[in-house]
Design a protein around this nucleic acid. Sequence first.
DNA 1: TCCAATGTTCGAGTATCGTCGAACCAACGG
DNA 2: CCGTTGGTTCGACGATACTCGAACATTGGA
Lengths: 111, 111
Amino acid sequence: MSNMGYAGHMELHEPELREVPVTAVLAALADDVRLQIVRTLAEGGGEYACGTFEFGVSKATRSHHLKVLREAGLTRTRVAGTSRYVRLRREELERLYPGLLDAVLAAPTRA
Amino acid sequence: MSNMGYAGHMELHEPELREVPVTAVLAALADDVRLQIVRTLAEGGGEYACGTFEFGVSKATRSHHLKVLREAGLTRTRVAGTSRYVRLRREELERLYPGLLDAVLAAPTRA
DNA sequence: TCCAATGTTCGAGTATCGTCGAACCAACGG
DNA sequence: CCGTTGGTTCGACGATACTCGAACATTGGA
């Protein structure tokens, strides 16, 4: 009955947004791959399986970026079967950082 | 030769804002020292000599951060005598990234 | 039961970042 | 001139960040 060594039963680390320094939120957004993920989540508006985000990186790297987003308080993850469904924490973000996400999303894709 | 503004032969690199990827702007803001500098500039509204920003780092580090801000298109620098005066590029930022700077500045200082 | 699918974690390589002291430079004031 | 002042640059350091392949865990189906 050991559950050692793997995160299958571990709780996903999803911090309270107010515990996250704004610099961490900005750092999470300051990466091309992660910004593409966030854009996809924002445009779709709902949940996406991790595998959705095919942006030219390996699945290990993708998993890493999703973890960064989650631990920066930007996303929430729901586990279902072998898949994990990710969604943006829009309302919470809007409450704590009004206008921030919209401003970033409105920015030109390629500057 | 005119004596007008002979500010040494070093050219400051101040890119056009549209040439700067938004991720670079976000990365520039995603540091505590730099965010404090930006806050100071925004609250004061005008120009500040580099020496103004005493945030517990050496002057070499301060100079580095000011360079990062400048090259991310966030600030402009005017050379006068032995001093350099830094100011925020608010209007340009507002035009290209409407609401972004305000949202960041409105964020809680101590998250 | 075995296998494929979906993700995560590990270990390592490379790159970039933040930091400092020391050396440097240009401008100013005696 | 010479020294001081304001600031930059250099070289180095340790810490982080991004990336990948490989190995692993969990689920669900043949």
